[in-house]
Simulated assay, not measured.
Amino acid sequence: MVLITGGDVGIGLGFARGSRGSRRRRDLGRRQDRNEEAARELEAFGVRVLPQTVDVSDEAQVASAMAAAVEKIGWVDGVGGPGPVVERGRRRLDESKPLEAMHLAEAALAAEPSSLDAPRLKLDATVALLAGSTRENFSEVRWLESEVRRLRAAVEELAR
């Protein structure tokens, strides 16, 4: 059994498609209609999918979904979704690879626009790019500065 968050769209659906080797899966997404559409697509490959609508920002809902998966199937082999993409981005940032971190943040944002972790990563990567700039390219510097302002405002708004 593989548990995939956001398994109905974007990166989560990509993880779902990539985990077709697992014969049993539980996909968690916020929209039941997309969950069911993703389930039909994956069932065409012989995968048993148990879609469930869950808000992964609500710990109680996630705990309930995990318990239901274990009760229904008996075990959970792995969990995937946009979260690991942000974690990989943080590692790239720690390795002084801010451009790679930014690309990973953008991928996570595409899958989970309401996530707070992905915009924080993108902000931190943009700040690192600006700090590492030679400041010789005026347009690049001004663009990075405007991105930092925009991302700070977006992070503040999401944090409310």
Rank of each mutant, 00 (worst) to 15 (best):
E136D: 13
A131S: 12
D124Y: 01
S64V: 08
A44Q: 15
V47H: 06
R90K: 14
A16C: 07
L121E: 01
L50H: 13
P98W: 04
D124G: 02
S114Q: 14
A128G: 07
L93T: 01
V9L: 12
G80P: 05
D33F: 10
G10C: 08
L104C: 06
G10F: 03
A44V: 10
E136L: 15
G6V: 01
E36P: 03
D117T: 06
E36G: 03
R149C: 11
D117L: 08
R152P: 03
V70D: 00
L28D: 01
V56W: 04
A105M: 05
M66D: 06
L144R: 04
R149G: 07
S139E: 14
E112G: 03
W75N: 11
E157Q: 14
A159I: 10
M1Q: 09
P119T: 06
E157N: 13
V2Q: 01
D124K: 02
I4P: 06
N35T: 06
V56C: 06
A108Q: 04
V141G: 04
R92S: 05
R120L: 12
E136W: 15
R24G: 01
T5A: 09
P119S: 09
P51W: 00
E100G: 03
L151F: 05
V49M: 06
E106Q: 15
G10M: 05
